[in-house]
Amino acid sequence: MSTVLGLLNNTIAFSSVDGPGNRFVVFLQGCNFNCVTCHNPYTITRCTDCGLCVGPCPEHALSIEDGPLIVLDTGACTLCDVCIEVCPEDSTPLARVVTVRDLIEEIRAVAPFISGITVSGGEATQQPEFVADLFSTLKADPHLAHLTTFVDSNGAAPVEVWKRLADVMDGAMVDLKALDPATHLRLTARENDQVLASIEYLAQHDLLYEVRLLIVPGYNDDTQTVLRTAEWLSSVDPSMRIKLIGYRAHGVRPEALHIPEATGELLEHLETILREHGFDQIAVT
């Protein structure tokens, strides 16, 4: 076990929506995308310790007097989220630095109840050494080695990151926000070349658990777009598992509230298109 530290937003002991079976989920802090539709915008940026959240905290759980860093009194914090609301940086003072050992002990307690762990975010691949360490430590522990290791990623990572993880990772769920580069840029503020390369690499190496298509009305929900996406995905792996996710407004920043939510009819229509392209493992949520 190395001394690499992780910047953690939070963990969830039980999740049934982050891969196969019941899973322990690690949400790392920090993301290289800035999605219009982000449900957790406070996980995007690392805290700059500017201190603007210290005063507004109604529980006086935050302080900065003793040094350059914000200090959190976890006993006083009630998770009211005022700090998140006043943060100008899309961050949170609640993110904390953890060691692999910290997380391993949390996982050990939950281990009898889970099929595995999933590292999500933020963006998991922004902290590749930490994720690699966590996974290899799990695989080396005789009591935890049976747990499967998954990454939930936006796909915007160099292939070298996947190569680094390949030996200790059992699978990855990758978002494809848009096949069209211009739409991708509008949705995420980033190009999608790495995303496409990641999906191809992971599929070739049998590490692609699922591709997730977030359907955002007005951006990527028209039939032609989905047809082209289905064709491309089919050229990568015609038997891949696809999760079709309708955009929902909950948790998004105020500037995204004008985007209409995806309807059940729309998702049903798009699912039909995917099925006509031969995909038979499709989950719709």
């Binding site: 039980f14 049934s16 929506v17 019941n22 899973r23 939950v110 009898p112 099929s115 989950a283």
Partner: peptide, 23 residues
């Protein structure tokens, strides 16, 4: 109480049952 989402992933409930009895 478990979320409705387990309907799409009943294996998660198998994990919980096995874990609960093992502990």
């Amino acid at each position: 109480h478990i979320d409705d989402t387990v309907r799409d992933n009943p294996e998660a409930v198998v994990d919980m049952i096995r874990g609960a009895f093992a502990t």
